[in-house]
Computed example of a mutant assay.
Amino acid sequence: MALEQALTWSNLRFILDGLWVTLEVAIVSIILSFVIGGIFGVIRYLKIPVISVGVGIIIDIIRNLPLLLIIFFTYFALPQIGIQFSIFWSAVIALTIFESAMLSEIIRGGLLAVPKGQLEAGISTGLTKIQTIYYIVLPQGLKLMVPPLVSQFVSLIRDTSLAVIISLPELTHNTKIIYAEYPNTVLPMFLIMALLYFIICYSLSYFSKRFEVNYAK
């Protein structure tokens, strides 16, 4: 009976609606955090006076804050100073802030893993530092960055569930509503939710491994 209640078309559609919101938030956050994290990572790698130190301090502060606190800040605190976002964008901004700090360190570490001689060789040919990083250092460091980057992206997907605290209608939120209305569907709902998260995260990990194999050839 519990399984029948859990697998009704209306419930499944509601869960899939939540899954779509989860994917939307995750995709937008991944793109934004990768771009911002990449910029911060390169700035720290270049060791630009004052700027690199300032960026490093900001990153260290963010990395040592709970993501839940950042979500609360974007949704509840910012409106107090006249800055207000929708639930969707509050979640995206919070995840982007947190993940950008994490990704910047991964990207910086990948760049540092490339021998310094590569940077010096590129500059000696007449390329600027930025051009050398883009054309020579980054392609070599990317192979080393892929596993930790994917791991962080998987964490980001899982972390979207924390936005349930501000009532973002994502997968966890919608599943919670169903089993709150039908208490005997708690177990089936948790199994369905776990299966969907597993499919998404495993698929991302699988394609990243395929990318590594092809990139290595």
Rank of each mutant, 00 (worst) to 15 (best):
F76V: 12
Q140D: 00
V114P: 00
Y206N: 08
V114C: 00
I57T: 09
I130G: 10
I199V: 15
L78W: 13
A180T: 15
L46G: 08
I106L: 04
Y179R: 08
Q118M: 05
I199R: 14
A163S: 07
V154W: 10
L65Q: 09
A2E: 11
Q152R: 08
I57D: 12
G141R: 06
R210Q: 12
S205K: 07
V25Q: 01
S155F: 08
L162D: 03
Y45S: 09
V55P: 02
P183M: 11
Y135G: 02
G82C: 08
I157N: 01
T22E: 03
I39R: 00
L112E: 10
G38R: 06
C201S: 09
V42F: 05
L23R: 01
I97M: 08
L46W: 06
I97F: 00
M193E: 10
V28Q: 08
I166V: 07
Y135T: 12
I15D: 03
G54I: 10
K217R: 15
K176R: 13
I177K: 11
T8C: 01
L168W: 02
L156R: 06
F85R: 07
N64D: 00
T22M: 03
H173P: 00
A91L: 07
Y197Q: 10
I70S: 05
I93M: 04
W9C: 01
Y179T: 04
P139Y: 13
S124T: 02
K47H: 15
F72R: 08
I83S: 14
I36D: 01
V21P: 04
F198T: 00
R44S: 07
F190K: 10
E99R: 01
D17K: 11
V150M: 14
L3V: 11
V146H: 12
R210T: 08
M193R: 11
Q84L: 03
I81H: 11
R158M: 04
R44N: 12
V55D: 06
R210K: 15
E181T: 14
L32C: 04
P147M: 13
S203G: 14
G18E: 09
I157H: 05
T175M: 02
R108T: 00
E99D: 08
S86G: 15
K47V: 08
A121W: 09
L19D: 01
G56P: 04
L3E: 14
L204D: 03
R210N: 12
W89F: 12
G110M: 01
L69Q: 03
M189C: 10
Y179L: 00
Q152E: 13
I81G: 15
Y197D: 08
F73P: 06
G82W: 09
P148E: 09
L191P: 05
I83G: 14
M102E: 04
F207R: 06
I136W: 10
